[in-house]
Amino acid sequence: MYRIRFHGRGGQGMKTASRILSNAFFLGGYEVQDAPRYGAERRGAPIFAYVRAAKQPINERGIINRPDLVIVADDSLVAIPAAGVLQGIGPQTVLMINSHEAARTWEERLNVPGQVLILPVTEEVEDRAELPFLGTTCAGAAARLIGIIPLEHLQQAIRDELAHLGTEIVEKNLQQAAEAYELAAEYAGKVIEGTEISAQDYAKPEWIDMPFEVASISAPTIHTGLTSELAATGTWRTMRPVIDYQLCNRCWWVCSEFCPDGAITVDDEGYPQIDLDQCKGCMICVAQCPPHAIEAVAESVAQLAEATEATEATEAVGDKS
């Protein structure tokens, strides 16, 4: 059985990618199963989708723990443990990451047993959740890596799955998928169908007897508001609000009041300060600010600017010494 996982952010088309791939398998006579998995149904939140394909009826269900192929549409997810990108990667697993960085860099950084490949399609766009055609691109690359899916089945699957979007969008997706299919030609057939777990030789589950604990410990109570501070929801952000203090009229309340996460405080001089560990990037402040002093900047662009600034600052210190 082939077991494939697609990781991305809500809005990047991972559910679509899984549906295209599974449909393409199905057209080739495979039994298939595809499903998305998301917690919060929200743009920009980490999601994954998975595909199983086999010549026999599929009885396995749920999350794939031993993937043959993992496709990562957004490399910023790799560092988020909750996204589970690296879960169950073994020596046979192919891990394909959409990234500017080299495969070797990722191999050294991650130190995982599988083989890392790069899908070089990252483009700079305003909002990462709007990377165009990323879903079909990932499906196209996956189809070629698997090696047994002919291009015409991939194309038919795209027509089936995206028909509701109209001819023009379908055509663009077909083109993107074909390019990705071509791009991955070098590694065609790299993905190997995984085996089943043997009932003879398996890792025994480490079951425990659940200990009794009193309700003051075991009730699902959040005792203080601090839990939300401890979860750095800033990692969810795909867009960052940036304040132009020249334009800020120190109204002292609008942006901070409207912030649904209480992530904006106002300092003694009446200037708002955004807590970027907590700001989820909803951009409500951008919409509300009366003098339009807050700008929405793509998070990737903002991070790059920060890194450049930091380097320049270090160099400046170096010059002085």
């Binding site: 009885n59 396995e60 269900r61």
Partner: peptide
């Protein structure tokens, strides 16, 4: 539907003589 997981387990156990 978790019962289909048990079908899979039945097949694997039958493979080794159960």
């Amino acid at each position: 539907c978790f019962a289909t997981k048990a079908k899979e387990a039945v097949d694997r156990l039958r493979d080794i003589g159960w």
